[in-house]
Simulated scan of single mutants.
Amino acid sequence: MNIFACSNYRDTMRTTKILLADDHTLIRECLIAMIEKAPGLEVVAQAGSGMEAVRLTYELKPDLVLMDLVMPDGNGIEASRCILSAFPDTKVLMLSMYGDARSVRQALEAGGKGFLVKSCPSEEILEAVRVVSDNGFYLSSHLQGVLEHELHPAAGKLPLTSREEEVLVLMAQGKTSREIAAQLQISPKTVETHRMHLMKKLNLTNIASLTKFAIREGLLPLE
């Protein structure tokens, strides 16, 4: 199992609508053939550029965009920012030939919920799509060695208490203040106090930015 995958996966019958964005026709056709064989997944459109991906997202409002990193007319990073600024509930899963830490970091900072390298097996692509569509995060197993240093900072680097780190991780997993309070055996008011302290210490403004920070710093208990 990929240790860089984290999800609250639940077996549901809901169909996930997917937009494919890649400037190579052959890659799009292969992805479509693979995805449409999987139950619960449907490719609703395909785009050959970043600009086209943004336009089709406005028109079709897919649940998930499988986005190539490098494309003409706006790369995957720029397209992701445009899409997520207008449709924050849309999930973006980045797919690229490049697996360097800088590219992954840029993708996550743009709002991507996962990153795959194109050399990964088809089974991993399907796993990543399901994890991300279920509000999880996925980083390709090919990236584990590359990102080990990037995602796991040295001890003592973060300006957080152990309790604040616990609250941050649970918030990044999508738990409510009441759920966090019950798990940590503290009051919901105390959870909110920790949340405010986290945002102030890290200079962040919302839950989405806290989640990105947790991913970037390797704090999520990835399974």
Results as ranks from 00 to 15, higher is better:
1 M>K: 12
1 M>N: 13
5 A>N: 04
8 N>I: 09
9 Y>C: 10
9 Y>N: 07
10 R>M: 11
11 D>T: 11
13 M>P: 02
15 T>Y: 07
17 K>I: 02
19 L>Q: 05
19 L>Y: 01
21 A>Y: 04
21 A>V: 02
22 D>S: 07
22 D>R: 01
25 T>K: 11
27 I>D: 10
28 R>N: 14
28 R>K: 13
30 C>A: 15
31 L>C: 10
31 L>Q: 02
36 E>W: 06
37 K>E: 15
41 L>C: 11
41 L>I: 09
42 E>Q: 15
42 E>Y: 00
52 E>R: 05
55 R>H: 14
60 L>D: 12
61 K>E: 15
64 L>S: 04
70 V>D: 06
71 M>Q: 05
71 M>Y: 02
71 M>S: 03
72 P>G: 15
73 D>W: 08
73 D>N: 14
75 N>L: 06
75 N>P: 01
76 G>I: 03
77 I>P: 00
80 S>W: 00
80 S>A: 15
81 R>S: 06
84 L>V: 04
84 L>E: 04
88 P>A: 09
88 P>W: 06
98 Y>C: 14
99 G>C: 01
101 A>D: 11
102 R>V: 09
105 R>W: 10
108 L>E: 03
108 L>N: 02
109 E>P: 09
110 A>L: 07
113 K>D: 06
116 L>T: 05
120 C>T: 12
120 C>Y: 00
121 P>H: 10
123 E>Y: 10
127 E>A: 03
133 S>K: 05
134 D>N: 10
139 L>A: 01
143 L>Y: 02
148 E>L: 12
152 H>R: 15
152 H>S: 12
152 H>V: 12
155 A>R: 14
155 A>K: 14
157 K>T: 15
159 P>L: 07
160 L>Y: 08
162 S>T: 14
162 S>E: 14
166 E>I: 08
167 V>W: 06
168 L>Q: 00
170 L>F: 08
172 A>L: 03
173 Q>C: 11
175 K>H: 13
176 T>V: 06
176 T>M: 10
180 I>K: 04
182 A>G: 06
184 L>Y: 00
189 K>M: 14
191 V>T: 04
193 T>Q: 15
194 H>W: 03
195 R>L: 13
195 R>V: 08
199 M>S: 07
201 K>V: 15
203 N>W: 11
203 N>R: 15
206 N>V: 09
207 I>F: 04
209 S>Y: 02
211 T>L: 03
211 T>F: 01
221 P>H: 13
223 E>Q: 13
